[in-house]
Nucleic acid binder design. Sequence first.
RNA 1: GCCGGAGUGGCGGAACAGGCAGACGCCCCGGACUUAAAAUCCGGUGAUCGCGAGAUCGUACCGGUUCGACCCCGGUCUCCGGUACCA
Length: 825
Amino acid sequence: MNEKYEPGKIESKWQQRWDADGLFRTDDAAGGEPYYILEMFPYPSGKLHMGHVRNYSIGDVAARYQRMNGKNVLHPMGWDSFGLPAENAAIKNGIRPDIWTRENIAEMRVQLKQLGIAYDWDREVATCLPDYYKWTQWIFVKFFEKGLAYKKKNPVNWCPSCETVLANEQVVDGKCERCGTEVGKKNLDQWYLAITEYAQRLLDDLDRLTGWPNSVKTMQANWIGRSAGAEVDFDIVGSGDKLRIFTTRPDTLYGVTYMVMAPEHPFVKPLTDGTEYEDGVKKFLDKLQYMNDIDRTSLALEKDGFFIGRYAINPLNGKEIPIYIANYVLMDYGTGAIMAVPAHDTRDFDFAVKYGLDIIPVVDPGRDDIDLSDLKEAFVAEGTMINSAQFDGLDSAAAKIKITEYVEAQGFGASSVTFRLRDWLISRQRYWGVPIPMLYCETCGWVAEREENLPVLLPADVQFTGKGESPLTTSKSFAEGGVCPICGKPARRETDTMDTFLDSSWYFLRYTDPHNNNNIFDFEKAKQWMPVDKYIGGVEHAILHLLYARFFTKFLFDIGVSPVGEPFTNLLTQGMVLKDGKKMSKSIGNVVSPEEIIGRFGADTARLFILFASPPEKELEWSDAGVEGGFRFLGRVWRLAQGVLEAEAAEGVDSPVKPANDDGELAYAQNAAIKKVGSDIGERDNLNTAISAIMEFANAIGKAKEAGTASQAQLREAVEKLTLILSPFAPHICEEIWEACGHTGSVLKESWPVYDEAALKRDTEEIALQINGKVKGKITAPTGLTAQELAEAAAQTDEAKALMAGQNVVKVIGVPGRLVNIVVK
RNA sequence: GCCGGAGUGGCGGAACAGGCAGACGCCCCGGACUUAAAAUCCGGUGAUCGCGAGAUCGUACCGGUUCGACCCCGGUCUCCGGUACCA
């Protein structure tokens, strides 16, 4: 063992040895219970950032721990390598997206190896490679065959100056990020996946995910947003059409005083064309096009509406009511039209007040503080029905059912369930993505490419002008080179590519059989590993990525391809890495580069600090001083091991098993540490407290060595146990110490140490003495007393007697192992 | 706006099921070693008052439940994530 701890030397040595020995390779046929641990694969942006280091360090601790516990661990890595930044680099610097991406991957792979993460690199996948995206296309074709992929018109952000489609991210305050021009909308024909067909199952199966944080499940449930209610038809006066609305409050049908259609509703134009309202409608639409849905649905939004000169008939009471268009009604939700009940809906109330519309209460709150003839705000809770003809006097909850039944019986409508979740728009007018494997034939319409012709390769002969709809249109050979699979005539290829979220919605399945050229993956292999036992990634993915991955898995299950219906058994959502309270970002200039930290302190220190500074699911505040603390600790471990081994070399291990003055503290510390570190990693995901337990153990070894309260044999054992439980966190230094201890194999092949419960037993313990819940003193009591015995024993002590003197004692409460509370009056 | 989360010493955090608030580490202060410095080792370190023993206060803020609340309940504030074309 070297005198000095020099991470630079030992880390590369062990990384090379691990690589040469194939230590991290997973053998499907190996023994042991399969354990699949996965971190969300990165977008290859160029270099690793601290968020990556955190993510993969968390996963590596769990992977190494499970392996030491005898599991057959699958721990793969790959690249989510399609996306916008590669294309921007192409437009800006003229670099080909594939080359830019490949170089980034190469660099980041080296960095991951420098971190010492135990990945099976033989299973590496990259979503931008044809042997991967072939199967992404295959899945799309399956969706199309099942009728779950369809085309529909939808507006995109369009910059009139750059003449290109913009992502929401590229629109800043309604202006183009590049040129500052006001962004408009352009209606394009786009592909959708019918995720709403799976809405109910995606919602119901959340209950099965007991290993997921409740916060994520709640967010998903709210995102899916199931609402039960009714659809009701209102006749439009002077038109043959009926206006169909969706409401969650059919009980308030008698309180409807106006109707609102989304301005984009298809009825609006025919109802107003050629009337005096036509101009106003147009102006209203123009005003709206710069507003996004977030602002439009904001409760704080100034309600804005326009009367379109038409009336509808309330089917229940025959009343004629005005029809408006307004900014707060969306075409995407429900039927794109609502009945407005200002007395019982907050948004309708605001609107009615602004435009002087009637407010008719139909639910009586039965409260003195609410004056129904002069409402100050909408009353949205339950109550008793009034002004509702034969339904008066009913409870509003009961009326909801009764009125829906009545509406159904009369043929005005039906009960209905609506989801907030919308179908998934997957078309992107981009180059660097998976080509959508569809062809348009003049005779046959939209048809899917034949399976044997997949993958539909991304063409190389495109121009990156940054203009126009999709760059693929600039490749004539691609756009016009298709043949209709049905009739054989020339067909036009779809030139849009897929949302990159599709790529990442099934990669966890491909890892189980990554080199399969004949199938998406082998069913039996997937069955062996799936579902993923622990999935770790940023909490920012709590909704979209995780919902899409669940959706794909369910679809693949339904078509008999996936062995499971849910992909991830346990989910760990990690917090962000901050510097000075803010997210690390180039624009703020507060980025700390992992490269630099590894160069100065080594990977072990980087890993140790990032895991110690905060529990995984919380935000982490970066601290340079804290990193040095981590480095110091590893140096201390190094010297401790060195000191013990040197003393042993000098004196031999012939010292008694236990010296006469052994106080049992070292054995206690050793067993306590093994127990705590195991449960912190295996059960609680609290890696920060696992590390503090290791530090306490190291401190105890140092103390025992200094005080001479442990034998040479005890110290040697303690150092070895310390090395084993530290190894998932700081593997390189532990391999080096393990080798110095005379072992020839890797620590990773050792078994996780077991602890001895007997060594954790003590005869007496310190108990806090409280008066009315305030700590007033301490007593020593034998361990193992019941609450009753403890209270009685405590009351006999001098300390307690002194505290109780002159007091009126009401009762004495004992809490075993903790405290005794004397309640006085 | 809506949905979800967080708020504890100078700092990161701990307290696992309602039971001793501040483990572990950082910073800082003092000491040892050194010609000196670095490194290392030892000790101290929530606030206020007190020479001291000790006392009082203290987990964002206001209120409640309880023998006992960082933890449970009601309300408020601030910050963070998501908000469907960043991934």
